[in-house]
Amino acid sequence: MSGELLLTFAVGLLAATLRVATPLLYATIGEVLTERAGILNLGIEGIMFLGAFVGFAAAAQAVEAGLAGHLWVGLAAAVLAGVLMGLLMAFLTVTLGLNQHVSGLGITLLATALSLYGFRLVFGESSVLPSIEPFGQFSVFGDLPVLGPIFRQYGLTYLAFLVLVPLSWWVLYRSTFGLNIRAVGENPEAADAAGVSVFRVRYAAVILGAALMAVGGAFLSLAQLGAFSPGLIAGRGWVCIALVIFARWDPVRAMWGALLFGGVFALQLRLQTLGLELPFEAFLALPYLVTIGVLALAGRQVEYPGAYLKPYRRE
């Protein structure tokens, strides 16, 4: 009997782990691509938030207008918002060559403020949080016995694990675009001399990365919750910043990192609902502490992208 209970617990935990890991995976891979091109985008926290808001607001408007496929409208709008923020970040850090971390934090502050401002404009100050019919969960394997819940997931979760991870790995290591990303991130002077447009590749990487971050945020409002609230992202973007280092700038290791954190998070949530008296904040602080610990232990052996944080100007 208790074995059966444990199995149910484990299955539920695994299913939740995949759900929690999904938004982290989108945003972390977005940040990996960005940093591989030599740009640290600390706008991640704000861009996820903006993606969540714009996706939700557009979907809600589509419902009101009686449009079919409101969630796809929302997702497209979130991607667009991410692209715009990526464009701004690229303009500041690539064209103008400004300080990347201050620019990125500025983007986070701006995107967060714009979302909250927009939320008040669109939805007013109603005490009831507006909601929409979210994406549904399904299983590509039909209804399996026992293990079924693990595979009952959102389409965006399937997309993240089965398409995004292998695809981003392939792009980064097997495509010309990925080669160019790594080249401009390691040694922009050499890439430039070899005829690669450092500006264009960095723009593309930052914009693509920001779009993925926005999708990660939109997953929360359009799939997991079907609602938007000011505390929606709650530091998930910073978790991704930690995961990128933990994953040493690799999409596949980013997946393991996201799963690990997703697992820890899902576990603490479950233990909390069981009414255990534990300092759950310790679990939540874990990804940050582990990353700092990894950095401290690996020390000088951590291989940052060569041109990390360095603007490139032809002079």
């Binding site: 600390l42 971390h101 530091g235 300092p279 310790a282 990353t291 401290a296 951590v302 944080l309």
Partner: peptide, 27 residues
């Protein structure tokens, strides 16, 4: 210390400790 002794970039480490502090206060 990590910056001075190990040449570890401080931007990310100082940023991550913000979240840790908030969790500490919450705990």
């Amino acid at each position: 210390l990590m910056k001075v002794k190990l040449a570890i970039d401080e931007v990310v480490t100082t940023l991550l400790l913000n979240s840790v502090a908030l969790f500490g206060v919450s705990a």
